[in-house]
Amino acid sequence: MAHAVKKKLVVCGGNGFLGSRICRAAANRGWSVTSISRSGEPNWSSVSASPTAPAWSDKVEWQKGDIMDPKTYTSHLENADAVIHSMGILLEADYKGVVSGKESPIAGLQRAFSASKAGTQNPMNRSEGEPLRPQERDGQLTYEVMNRDTAVSLAKEAADRKVPAFLYISAAAGAPVLPARYISTKREAESIISTQFPGMRSIFIRAPFMYDSSRTFTMPIAALGHMASMANDLTGGRLTWLMGAGGIKPLKADVVGDAVVEALEDEEVKGPVEVKQIETLATRAWRKNML
């Protein structure tokens, strides 16, 4: 009897906190999984409760590649059924100039919370194989670079290779302590990908704050987040503008990972996926895994 051909999934950022859980969920659901990251296999102690590689990791092909340099990863996109962008930055590195004395604290804060920063050259217009080049004067990896342009560049490479589905790990909201550009660049990436590549099913997982007991510092933050989200719910969500992601229910990272794979397997899922739908997808995945 002939065996069914496994669907191929490529996860850029698959060795990260969420990316590794996506790889686990997909591998356990029978996908052929390739992870691409600069370091290859995860540092397991940083993404799990053990420094030892889990049994499921043998099912994943851990490849090295640089999201800024398409020629280091495009060969892995061939014949893929889905591609995931699971990387970005929460904080920019403006503090380095302040600490080194090259920039005053005021100038550093002004730069950090500026209304706009440069990304890369237009990722839609770069030539074949051309690396992304940060345009800030010091080559800073800004939100525009990591949250927007790398996603658009990867989506373009996937579309050029006729990959049917592209999934982008976005965010539910920003936060008062973060520059507004953190969330605006996420939304810009969603808009560009959905409009520029209409032939590819695009999914945008708007994840909230994610926690796991293997990262102990996330647990008290999640507890506070649950209380804040309940208070926000009591007001009908009227505090979201003030609290941002802090007023949205946190989710366990495993839940989001399971939901991502379920979303890819459901051809009806496309566009933005909010927190309640993430929970619904994860519950459906859990029921399937129990069968």
Rank of each mutant, 00 (worst) to 15 (best):
S39Q: 14
E279A: 12
L132A: 11
D266H: 00
G88A: 13
G257I: 08
Q140I: 05
L90Y: 07
N43Y: 15
S37F: 02
V98N: 09
E103F: 04
G16K: 01
R111H: 06
M87I: 03
G65K: 04
V177D: 01
P250E: 07
A55F: 13
V33Y: 02
T280L: 13
I278E: 07
E279L: 05
A107Q: 12
Q121T: 10
K186T: 08
G30D: 09
A4F: 06
S45I: 09
A27M: 02
M227N: 06
G16S: 09
I192C: 11
S214N: 06
G65F: 00
V177T: 06
D66M: 01
S32E: 15
N232T: 13
A175Y: 15
P42I: 13
E279Q: 10
T150N: 09
V275R: 01
V260P: 07
A222N: 09
Y168D: 01
H85I: 05
Y211I: 00
Y182L: 13
K6I: 08
A55I: 12
S57G: 03
D94R: 10
A107T: 08
S194E: 02
F209C: 00
S57H: 12
V273D: 09
S46Y: 03
P131D: 07
V273H: 01
L178E: 03
T235L: 08
Y95H: 13
S100P: 08
R201L: 01
H85W: 11
E144V: 03
R24H: 08
T280Q: 03
A93M: 12
G199K: 12
M200S: 12
R148D: 11
N232Y: 02
T34G: 11
I203P: 01
C23A: 13
N122P: 01
A172M: 11
I84S: 15
R133C: 13
E190G: 07
M146R: 04
S57P: 07
K249P: 00
D160H: 03
E267D: 13
Q277V: 03
V269K: 00
P176C: 03
E188P: 02
A172F: 03
V33S: 14
P70I: 00
I169D: 04
